[in-house]
């Protein structure tokens, strides 16, 4: 295997194999199936360990550019993202190195016609089966997280109806409180921290996208049918939201904010605003003066943690 003209397989091993003994095997040794299995099993085990590590101890890993997530659902998505990122880094990195190696190692050196290798059945089976196993792993992780993210609690703390329209948002609370805002003044959705809130989402006109980056979540608001999901905000804070689905002329300006406050403060806000709106039946969607006057237009920065107020 030491010759320059070493076999096709040997070259692959020298890059991809984990076990150095593989590459130093004598050239005439047939590739034993046991050896192959061992290598494949080892790779699989490595992938399994990585996936497991990600699902369990994701917090210690880098964020890889994503928001850690400010809802319990978003946290699960964030850990899945870390897992996919690492898996992508390993697989993509391996393929990247193979390409780079091939490109630099096999530059034209002579006019010799190289060996006209066309097939290598064992190798082909390996690089079919191993990706299938990786995909199964990714799929299992996906389903686990997906079930957490889309789960709806039977008894949510409160329910909220969200209507999107060209070009703004309307948030309706259980007790009749309405918050409405358009492009000129983004509305704020007030939520209780640490409680599960059921959101029912719908559109009055065209498709819109309900998206809060720090919740790692978006959902279309569609005319014609309701869609629902749960939000369980972990920390008090203000989170910016925006329409993501093209909805016409002022799509770029369709903002809203989410302000999460303690359940007690949430109840106070709900009752004060409810009382105000009942007294002023014509002031649809207006808020009483002085109630969180500063909440509109105070979108936090992008750093991902600025929405938190110091809780762990």
């Amino acid at each position: 295997m030491g010759t320059a003209n070493s076999s096709f397989l040997a070259g692959f091993d020298s890059v991809g194999a984990v076990d150095p003994s593989l590459t130093s095997a004598p050239p005439d040794t047939p590739e034993s199936p046991g050896r192959r299995h061992k290598s494949a099993r080892r790779r699989l085990a490595a992938a399994g360990v990585v996936l497991g590590a990600i699902l369990l101890g994701g917090c210690q890993l880098p964020t890889f550019g994503a928001y850690k997530g400010s809802t319990s659902q978003a946290r699960s998505t964030f850990h899945l993202w870390q897992g996919f990122f690492i898996a992508g880094l390993i697989v993509g990195g391996l393929v990247f190195l193979l390409i780079v190696w091939a490109v630099f190692r096999y530059r034209k050196r002579s006019d010799d016609v190289p060996v006209q290798t066309q097939y290598h059945t064992v190798l082909e089976i390996i690089y079919t089966v191993v990706p299938v196993l990786i995909v199964i792993g990714l799929f299992i992780a996906t389903v686990v997280v997906e079930n957490k993210v889309t789960a709806v609690e039977p008894n949510p703390y409160t329910e909220l109806h969200v209507y999107a329209f060209q070009w703004g948002w309307e948030f309706q609370y259980d007790n009749g409180v309405k918050v409405i805002g358009q492009t000129t003044a983004a509305p704020t959705m007030v939520l209780p921290t640490g409680k599960t809130v059921r959101v029912y989402l719908r559109s009055y006109d065209v498709l819109h996208g309900f998206y809060v980056p720090e919740f790692n979540f978006s959902r279309y608001a569609s005319p014609g049918y309701w869609t629902s999901f749960d939000l369980h905000v972990l920390h008090n804070g203000v989170y910016r939201g925006q329409c993501t689905q093209l909805c016409g002329l002022y799509h770029s300006l369709m903002f809203f904010n989410v302000r999460s406050v303690s359940p007690a403060a949430f109840q106070t806000w709900l009752h004060t605003t409810g009382a105000f709106q009942r007294q002023h039946p014509n002031s649809i969607g207006q808020l009483p003066a002085g109630i969180h006057a500063n909440i509109n237009g105070t979108a936090p920065g992008y750093s991902g943690s600025s929405g938190n107020t110091g809780n762990s």
Binding site: V95, I99, Y106, K108, D111, D112, T128, P131, V132, L138
Partner: peptide, 29 residues
């Protein structure tokens, strides 16, 4: 989701075949 992820498998096969084609070749850039 599963069907979409599975497309990675044949696409991966094509990738390895392209790399395999270059492997031990005389590459002219």
């Amino acid at each position: 989701s599963l069907l979409s992820l599975l497309i990675a498998v044949p696409t991966g096969i094509e990738f390895f075949n392209w790399i395999g084609t270059m492997w031990h070749g005389q590459l002219r850039f």
